[in-house]
Amino acid sequence: MLRQLTSRCSTIITPLICHSAEKVHSHILGERPLLINFPSHTFLRTFLDLHQFHNKDAIAKERARLSDEISRGYFADMSEIHKNHGKIALANKTIIPSLIAAKFPNLEINFSDGRCEKLPSNPEQRINDSSQTALPCVTLLSLSFRASSQKMVESWSLPVLNAFGDAGTVKIYEVSFIDSWLFSLSPVKRLFLKIMLKSSNPQRQIAYSFGDHYYFRKKLQILNLLTGYTFLLDSSGCIRWQGYGYATEEEISWLLSCISLLLDEK
Rank of each mutant, 00 (worst) to 15 (best):
L2K: 02
L5N: 03
P15C: 06
C18G: 08
A21M: 11
S26M: 03
H27L: 14
P33T: 06
L35V: 14
T42K: 00
T46N: 09
L50K: 04
Q52Y: 00
Q52D: 08
F53N: 09
F53Y: 00
N55Y: 00
I59L: 13
A64R: 13
R65S: 14
Y74G: 01
E80W: 03
E80S: 12
H85Y: 04
A91H: 01
P97I: 04
F104L: 06
I109H: 08
F111H: 12
D113A: 12
E117S: 11
L119E: 09
Q132Y: 05
Q132F: 05
A134H: 01
A134L: 00
C137L: 10
R146Q: 14
A147V: 02
K151V: 06
E154P: 03
E154R: 09
E154S: 12
S155V: 04
W156G: 07
S157W: 02
A163W: 00
F164R: 14
A167E: 11
T169A: 14
Y173G: 08
S176Q: 10
F177P: 03
D179R: 08
S180E: 11
W181P: 02
K189H: 06
I195L: 12
I195S: 15
I195G: 15
K198W: 04
S199D: 11
Q203M: 12
G211F: 00
Y214C: 07
Y215D: 14
K219N: 14
N224W: 01
N224F: 02
L225V: 08
L232Y: 07
L233Y: 08
D234L: 11
G243H: 03
G245S: 02
A247W: 01
T248I: 01
E251N: 01
L261I: 08
K266W: 05
